[in-house]
Design a protein around this nucleic acid. Structure first.
Length: 129
DNA sequence: AGGCTGACATCGC
DNA sequence: CGCGATGCCAGCC
């Protein structure tokens, strides 16, 4: 479906981001927040969106993450949906990459879902404010 | 220029 | 209690 499209976007971003970094906007802020997520902690699209001021634009955060794939500094694996589910794992290099990365950070993952998500949850609005 | 899509979230029936 | 519909923003066709 959109897999092909994503691939194209990824390629395009490779040209756009590293080259000019463009005049980021929503994305850059998302990247910043994601980078601030401590190791061993995770956050959600909604929390980030909320922190940025637009709680309802959680989808955009996901879109930003998609772009973040090209950014080495952005630990997209630490960002999951509100359920703590690794909804975006299929967008990584390999479907298991996200889970592996999380496990390396002492985060337990079972059935594509983060264990004790509430404990590992890192809320930017709380931590950064 | 208009419409569709997308790694989400929330409200409604 | 579960599934469907809607909102949001940006980028692509």
């Amino acid at each position: 479906m959109a897999a092909k499209k994503t691939k194209e976007i990824k390629e395009k971003l490779k040209q756009v981001l590293p080259s000019g970094t463009r005049d980021a906007s929503f994305f850059e802020q998302v990247y910043d927040v994601v980078r601030l997520i401590p190791k061993g902690r995770v956050s959600s699209y909604g929390a980030i969106a909320f922190f940025l001021g637009t709680k309802m634009s959680a989808r955009m955060v996901g879109w930003a993450m998609n772009a973040a794939h090209g950014m080495k500094d952005v630990p997209a694996h630490r960002v999951v949906n509100r359920n703590g589910m690794l909804s975006g794992k299929m967008h990584f290099a390999t479907p298991t990459r996200m889970e592996e990365l999380l496990k390396k950070e002492k985060i337990k993952v079972e059935n594509d879902q983060i264990v004790d998500f509430e404990k590992k949850f890192w809320d930017p609005a709380k931590e950064l404010y």
